[in-house]
């Protein structure tokens, strides 16, 4: 064994390079069938997430009292809200698109699974965000949501009435988990590539009662 082979950094680098060659990790070309606006929504979701993280970072920098007390704080609060709305908007369209492409085909099931868990995790993260606004919404949502969490016995651990705990969930714990899922999801997309179209013959061999759009191109 050479010195280089013994070093964990070198081994990790070699493994990573084998799994994800640079041109696959950061591709500058996509297959020819990637020619639809629907493909934009994955990137759009990531872009919205970036705006969520940056606006959330500014809120964290100034602290909870700031986003109600000052017009600047309230504006950043607005940026954070609308970036979250756009995040879900684009993510749901991305999900619909991937569903109708059956994008889990060809050893891509894990890509779907990580994406779906990230979607559910985003709902939880957004939920804790509503709890830490420290306004009427937070009061009402926390006193309502406690019943759901308590009904299945987890309310003492996921304690929505504990502002401190929810703030830490929202700015540290959940983003960490979500960030990990998103990176895993994107790396899987890079590794496995974009799902190819259904084989044409198979599609033509499966007659469907209603005439779908695009029927005229079926061979």
């Amino acid at each position: 064994m050479t010195t280089e082979e013994r070093m964990w950094t070198a081994r990790l680098r070699n493994r990573a390079t084998r799994a994800l060659p640079p041109d696959q990790l950061l591709p500058d070309r996509q297959p020819a069938y990637v020619a639809s606006w629907i493909y934009v929504f994955g990137v759009a979701t990531l872009a919205a997430l970036l705006v969520v993280l940056v606006s959330g970072g500014i809120l964290a920098l100034e602290g909870p009292q700031w986003y109600h007390g000052s017009p600047q704080g309230h504006f950043v609060n607005s940026l954070h809200l609308w970036s979250v709305e756009l995040f879900f908007f684009t993510m749901v369209i991305h999900l619909w698109g991937k569903f109708f492409m059956a994008a889990w085909r060809g050893h891509r099931a894990m890509t779907w699974v990580t994406g779906a868990i990230a979607f559910l995790g985003s709902i939880g993260t957004a939920f804790t965000g509503y709890l830490v606004q420290s306004n009427f919404d937070s009061q009402w949502i926390s006193t309502q949501a406690k019943d759901g969490l308590n009904s299945v016995g987890v309310g003492a651990w996921f304690n929505v009435l504990n502002y401190g705990q929810m703030l830490l969930f929202h700015v540290v714990l959940f983003p960490l988990v979500l960030g990990f899922l998103v990176i895993w999801h994107v790396l899987l997309v890079r590794r496995r590539g974009v799902v190819p179209p259904f084989a044409d013959e198979a599609a033509a061999a499966t007659p469907v009662p209603q005439a779908p759009q695009g029927e005229e191109v079926a061979s």
Binding site: A35, I38, P197, T206, G214, S219
Partner: peptide, 25 residues
Amino acid sequence: LPFIPGLRSIPRATRVYRLIWREHY
């Protein structure tokens, strides 16, 4: 979803994909 028979066949049956990949076809 990718492992649930029936549900995972909806995309092929609805054929929305023919619209997405119409250039390819």
